[in-house]
Each structure stands twice: as C-alpha cells, then as structure tokens.
Design a protein around this nucleic acid. Structure first.
Lengths: 147, 147
DNA sequence: AGTCTACTTTACGTAAACGTCAAGCTAGTC
DNA sequence: GACTAGCTTGACGTTTACGTAAAGTAGACT
C-alpha cells in the first residue's frame, strides 16, 4: 500500500537507500545473517516484513551500526538494548521515566569515562612494551654488528 | 627460605605489601576467588604456592589489574593473555619474535584507536538523547505550570 | 518444468567466562 | 578437642552470543 513513486533510477548509492535485504546488510557490516536475526530476536532490530522476508530500512541500519559499536566497546546486547530503548522512548514517557533515563545516561557516561581512562593507561603500557621491545632489537642488531 | 627480615611492623598499607591471599585480592578488586582461580587456569596469573595455598605478590596484583582493565575494554581473556605474554617476553626472545610483538602491538593500538572513535560517537549520541530527554521534561513542566 | 539463489524457521551445538555446590584440609581459637 | 574461617580441588550448571545444519519456500533465469 502507498508505494509512493520514488525515482528508483539514477539514485544509485547515496548511502541512504530505501531498503536492504538481510544479506546486503550482513555483507556491509561483515556479520552473518544469523547474527542479524539474533539481534532482532533480542529486540535490537525491528525490520519490516514483506511476506515472509525481512526488509530493513535506514532505522535498522543505524541501529545495527550502534549495536556493533556497542559490542566493540564491550557492552552486552542487553545493555545496548537499554540504550536503544532510551533512544526510542526519549521524546515520550512520563516524568519519572525521563528522570530514570537521565540517571541511566549518567551511569553510561561514567562507564565511558572509565573506558577512556582504561585506554589511556593501556596505551601507555603498550608504549612501554614497545620501547623495551625496540631496545632489545637494538641490542640484537649491535651484537650482530660486532660479530 | 631466605625470609629476609623485613620491617613487618609500622609499614601498614603502603599499597605495596608483601603478599596477598586469594580472598584479600578478591575483595580488593571486587571479584570472586573463583574468578581469580579461573584466571590462573587460563594462564593470566602464576601465584606462588605455600603448601596447598596460593600466595599472591605484586606481580600478580598488577596482572589482575591489567586483566580487569582489559575486560572492561571488551578484550577476551585470550587477548589479554597475549598482551601479558608480550609484557613478560619483551626483553628476551629472538628477532622474529620481537618483530611479531611489534606487529601485535600495532594491531592492538589500532583497535584502541577504533575504541576511542567509538566512544566519541557514542558520547555524542548520549548527548543527543539527553538533550531530547531534557526538552521533553521542559515541555512536561510547562504543561504542568499552565494547569 | 527444472534449477539456482537467497531467503525462511526450527533446533541443536558450542566457546567463553564464570557461578555454584560438594567435600575435604588446616591453622587458629574457645 | 570441637569449632570456625578460609583455603583447596573437582565437577557440573548457566548465561551470552552466536554457529551450524536441516528442511522448506519463493522469485528469477534457462
């Protein structure tokens, strides 16, 4: 219903296409279709259905991107779902809910502060290892020169 | 053997104590003893043994700290073990090994760059949600004022 | 009509990272 | 000397996040 006549041609890949199959989305984000279906099952995606098949739109693409970003940061799918629900429910919801959201946001923000600090420290440690590693290499090369 | 007479008294908690039991370490880092034993089983810790019991020293404390930091950043225990082994083997090892270490380091560094970017984006998104959230609250309060 | 190809559901399997008993040792205390 | 607290090993259980067939469907091509 209401298949608004869109300029289907001459609008190739403006990065904001109309829809995606599960296979396309999987290829783009380098995950398996199974993973995408699993995320749907976990309430992270809500694709349209055309018959049996799933049809994904920009909203889903954005959510998937967010999900994978969250995963890279070590969030569980449950936590990511929380954030997504924040995102969706932010405009409506009563005062108590909104206040609760602000609390959760503050909490997430703290976690990310911690992560920033963790990264800072870990980078410093990697620097140390690298330095010692390069020094060892120098020693080896020097020894080889004397031979 | 060789229990060098250390000033055991009047040297309370200079943060660099002599040894820890598994329970102490667990309490300090807010994990269970089971977790600590598991990390040992995975090759992340190598405590001394005094009879049957495990005795942890500074080295183990540092490693545990590193491990938990890695976990917060979403690293697997296997990856963390890699880093730890880097740390230990950096000074010795042949040239090919050292070169390999440098490669792994570069790779980890890339991953952390990605994480920094991820955090940046996510913080921006949290900002957006918070803004919309606060706007909604304003609307609610205004409506309440008019009533 | 037959054959791909890409989708679908259902369901069992698996690796990681612990949790949760169970049963036993051991050093210190009442 | 019984008791308790804290340690030990062993083993099975649990959650998360998918992997991996199996079996069926639906559209496109030859």
């Amino acid at each position: 219903m209401s298949d608004a006549p869109q300029p289907a041609t001459l609008e190739r890949s403006t990065s904001s296409r109309r829809s995606y199959t599960i296979g396309e989305l999987a290829k783009v984000f380098e995950v398996t279709p199974r993973t995408i279906r699993f995320y749907e099952q976990e309430g992270l995606l809500t694709p349209e259905r055309r018959g049996r098949n799933r049809v994904y739109h920009e909203k889903d693409r954005v959510r998937l991107k967010l999900t994978l970003r969250g995963k890279r940061l070590g969030f569980s799918l449950a936590e990511i779902r929380e954030v997504i629900q924040l995102y969706d429910r932010a405009p409506d919801g009563d005062e108590r809910q909104l206040q609760r959201l602000l609390d959760i946001l503050a909490e997430k923000r703290l976690a990310m502060q911690q992560q920033l600090e963790d990264i800072r420290v870990l980078q410093q440690e990697l620097d140390d290892v690298e330095t010692r590693c390069r020094e060892s290499l120098q020693v080896l090369k020097a020894a080889r020169g004397k031979r």
